[in-house]
Design a protein around this nucleic acid. Sequence first.
DNA 1: GTATAAAACTAACAATTGTTAGTTTTGTTA
DNA 2: TAACAAAACTAACAATTGTTAGTTTTATAC
Lengths: 189, 189
Amino acid sequence: MKQESRKQEIVNAAAILFKEKGYSAVTMRDLATAMGIKAASLYNHIQSKQEILSTIIIELAEEFTTGMNQIVNSDHSAIQKLENIISLHIDVTLRNSDGLASLNNDWMHLEEDNLLYFEKMRNDYEENFRQIVISGVNTNEIKPNNIEIIVFSTLSTLRTLYLWYPKQKNIEADILKKDMISVLLKGLV
Amino acid sequence: MKQESRKQEIVNAAAILFKEKGYSAVTMRDLATAMGIKAASLYNHIQSKQEILSTIIIELAEEFTTGMNQIVNSDHSAIQKLENIISLHIDVTLRNSDGLASLNNDWMHLEEDNLLYFEKMRNDYEENFRQIVISGVNTNEIKPNNIEIIVFSTLSTLRTLYLWYPKQKNIEADILKKDMISVLLKGLV
DNA sequence: GTATAAAACTAACAATTGTTAGTTTTGTTA
DNA sequence: TAACAAAACTAACAATTGTTAGTTTTATAC
């Protein structure tokens, strides 16, 4: 319905502003100005500033959770699973790099239930990632370096893609995936 | 002098709060409470909230700039230079992981002169890093992957160390350096 | 062209923000 | 103990915050 699309416009505009200055530094008047309306008018479409933040973050977190679950439940090798995780991050980043800024930097401003829900998804995601790396080490697919360092260095790169990708103009998703797999994984093997 | 040390206590307390919630979400009353005093009393020691932020960030940025300049001006191989950069990041992270949160997430809240100064240091740092990678590729020390992807993936891991290191209890600097060099560089060679 | 719903508006609120002014307390030195 | 500086305090400010209430405009359907 129309209501939904106007709300989505607001959420999208908010994601851009949140990326530039962070959730706390963006006022409802900033957001209204970006939309070309007055602050009070925003409330015809959204319930609160907090709702905007949780809409952005929870939706993205659920995308990652769904994608990770599919990968975990597949019968691929550990390396293939890691390649699919890299692919997942790149796909999500291409689709919504603005929102990922909030997910990475403003999740702590979520309130009660959404905060707990987010933290659970994030922890589960990391634990799935860790188990895949561990199984890869056990099957000799992955060099036995410190597990935590492998998990951390790979995840930190994938989580920061949102900052870097929009600046690279002439790079296609497929090429990016290939190079990223090469740089992140070939060193581990 | 005493004044300086009290100011440093405030800056240190602020860095912890900024790490938890970001610069904009931390009020002077929050900071005062953490110090066990009233907000107005802070102003006996500091000039403004902004001064706290710039003290944290500029000092750290200058540390990185100094360290990078020494590495650039050395006559080591490209790989040795990269190893020294990893070592630099780990040293700075151990010394002041709280402040690095502000440097990474709140630099955009710096004002005019300090913002420009910071951005210049950051750009120079990245460019130095890039040139080292390029020279390493030219001397066949480094595999000829996409330069930007190598720079990005390595830097993003080093920049995120501040989030990860404090959670790892039983890991010493020397071991961390060795493992980090192994994970980040051995794959590139 | 009137009715209806969507989406904008004006005006205002109570709370919170960083900061200042002026005063009192604390601790040190002669 | 008198003097002095360091560091805390109380009280208040002007500006800004997210949000609400009530009203008007705009667009769509009959």
